[in-house]
């Protein structure tokens, strides 16, 4: 009996220790970012362009603008593509290609983000140079499969007899899907889109040789742009302490944005 109780206690200790061992570093990351980042957050940080290396001051306005451009462009490309694909997978049961497309889409979800960057480079950058568009394309390679998956699941949650009720009113199929099915699935679809925005806005690797970075504001989508994660990376591996501080500041901004989006989707939109 003593041995049994010992094993039982060992299980409890093992499971609690596992949590502690992982929770401490992860909470430390958040705390460090908060403390180190808060020092950099001045109005200038949000509104100014970076100063040359070694000079104090300046901000990350270009990176904030760049991230906004990249995320908007990516969503412009990938939301329609993913939504239509998800509709094809869930609303046209007679289609033959469904299984193949679903398999390829699932496989695509395993694409390492750096490979998406290489793909966009060989396909677009070699022809048109570094640009926001190439960056958005690389991000879309990651975003579309994720969204197809969540959107298809959202559509599948709509009960079949809702569709049949629509059809039995003599409403055309496309209208049943767009006005009834999509409307019913909207909260889940929106949460899928938002989570993808959160995920995409933190991606760095696909942007290294596509969006490339830009010390100034971008004036068009065919130009290189900066992005918050890109800037964090470049500043982090630089030798300048001021840039390190800026990297923490940019991290704090990015982290707050990403965690806020996650919290919103979790508590406002997810219906379970």
């Amino acid at each position: 009996m003593a041995a049994r109780r010992l094993k039982d206690n060992a299980l409890t200790i093992y499971s609690i220790l596992s949590l502690v061992v992982i929770a401490i570093p992860l909470l430390h990351i958040i705390a460090t970012t908060l403390i180190n980042g808060a020092q950099s957050l001045t109005p200038e940080f949000f509104t100014s362009l970076p100063k040359p290396p070694g000079e104090e001051g300046g901000g990350v306005a270009n990176a904030i603008q760049g991230t906004a451009i990249l995320v908007a462009l990516t969503m412009l490309i990938s939301v329609p593509a993913a939504l239509l694909t998800a509709i094809y997978l869930s609303e046209f049961p007679e289609s033959r290609l469904r299984d193949l497309i679903r398999l390829l889409n699932d496989t695509f979800m395993g694409t390492p983000s750096i490979v998406a960057g290489v793909f966009a480079y060989t396909l677009l950058v070699t022809k048109f140079g570094f640009s926001a568009l190439a960056g958005a394309f690389a991000l879309s390679v990651l975003a579309v499969p994720m969204m197809v998956k969540t959107m298809e699941e959202a559509l599948k949650l709509v009960p079949t007899d809702i569709r049949e009720a629509g059809l039995s009113l003599g409403i055309r199929h496309w209208r049943v899907v767009t006005s009834i099915v999509l409307r019913t699935a909207m909260p889940a679809i929106a949460s899928g889109v938002l989570l993808t925005v959160a995920r995409i806005s933190g991606e760095t690797a696909p942007l290294l040789f596509t969006a490339f970075g830009n010390p100034n504001f971008a004036t068009g989508i065919l130009e290189p742009v900066s992005a918050l994660p890109l800037m964090i990376y470049v500043y982090a591996i630089s030798p300048y302490p001021d840039w390190h501080r800026k990297a923490w500041g940019a991290s704090l901004v990015l982290m707050i944005a990403v965690l806020t989006i996650n919290l919103i989707t979790k508590y406002k939109l997810r219906r379970r």
Binding site: D161, L167, S168, I171
Partner: peptide, 28 residues
């Protein structure tokens, strides 16, 4: 679609469109 406009249907489980008002359910 023409057939279903002439032949309506009511289902086993009540299934009003969940995102719509009473009015819209009838008018849709």
């Amino acid at each position: 679609v023409e057939v279903r406009r002439k032949i309506g249907m009511v289902f086993q489980r009540p299934n009003p469109f969940p995102t719509m008002s009473i009015y819209d359910n009838v008018a849709i």
